[in-house]
Write a protein that binds this DNA or RNA. Sequence first.
DNA 1: GTCTATAGTCGGATAGAC
DNA 2: GTCTATCCGACTATAGAC
Lengths: 229, 229
Amino acid sequence: MNNTPGMTTAPTDSRLLDVAIDHFGRYGLEGASTRAIAHDAATPMSSITYHFGGKAGLYLAAADHIAASIRHHIGPAMAHAAALCGEGGSPAQARAAIHAILGGMIHVMLTRETEAMARFIVREQADPTPAFDRIYDGVMRGTLDRLGALVERLGEGRIDRAESRLRAITLVGQVLVFRVARATVMAGMGWTRIGPDETRAIARTIAAQCDAILDRVAEASPQPIGEQP
Amino acid sequence: MNNTPGMTTAPTDSRLLDVAIDHFGRYGLEGASTRAIAHDAATPMSSITYHFGGKAGLYLAAADHIAASIRHHIGPAMAHAAALCGEGGSPAQARAAIHAILGGMIHVMLTRETEAMARFIVREQADPTPAFDRIYDGVMRGTLDRLGALVERLGEGRIDRAESRLRAITLVGQVLVFRVARATVMAGMGWTRIGPDETRAIARTIAAQCDAILDRVAEASPQPIGEQP
DNA sequence: GTCTATAGTCGGATAGAC
DNA sequence: GTCTATCCGACTATAGAC
């Protein structure tokens, strides 16, 4: 526990977690090798047994670490959204909050820091283990609940809870595609990296589409005006 | 090659490909075991060497098989889209064609038949190998080109090629999320399966959002009417 | 074409020194 | 807490019988 902060010598268990997320993300629980993980973390293999009880324990600990880390990454955006729209906010406030959350997600999905974690999560989505529940309960549930509630608020009773959540999911999908289909995006756009220019282009497009969708939700066809508080 | 169709005894190489896609999708190239693949395909391990030259050859063959299979799955929708909007179609025709393609994608993304292939592709997206190029060149490039061109047509010169493609990607993202974040969708919606009702709800939501987006693209701010053929 | 047998490497877990 | 040594099972590849 007593290490020098800012140095390359993080505590053994912390180094193991970082390397484990990368290896498990690439090769899966069964495919990853504790030998290789220990080697890259510059510690003997038996320290995995000591700190985490074994390979399976390290895997679950990695999932918890990912949940906490993502929560930390979107924390500011969620706080900003909460400040923009509380419990009984207006439709306009709800829309601003949705934009704030999606903006935070764009950042999370595009930054290199979450690349290894994304591999881990995507793998868990395709073939869920108990580790998925930890990540879902740790970050996803709260974010999705919040986003769904904001969309429902914007609908002002015209769309029900289920459809609000479905719409929240597709909104997230527009952002998610840039992380999970990164290789297709790069090839399709002819990009070699996602730098500031590319990030701006993506954010602009998503914001425009999000606005188009939310306008429709807010309008609805025969809008019964004068029903909100 | 001479097998009884409809029986459980498909040719050895065909059985190997099916099992390989499943195993490689779950465990990756390194993580999957040729022993296990051969066992599940009810053939000795050495037949992998005979038919595909080894593990790596089987992996590439699996990628080619996936590309051909997805192309086959989405073929009808692409043909339908082509019938709806040729080279110089009207904006209305382009919109109908986009809906046709996205409808085909919804089917591809929701059916169980593509589940194993999706795992394979998602893994390749997160950590691309030469197999990804085969899949991209085999299906993705053509579909994305077509969708991008249709969006550009709908924009009638108001949005450029790059933004059209970016919009095409986010449109696909709305569909893709139901495949790559399936576990989150199930948990978030409280679903236990995606049956006819759930499929309808998803298709309805995506169609609505797609319309909202495309309306905005077609309108643009100061729409110069009367320019289409 | 299909299968058995075998060679050589690498996997995770663990006991025990320091 | 950290590390070495060791066990045993599973892995890919290949030679060769049928």
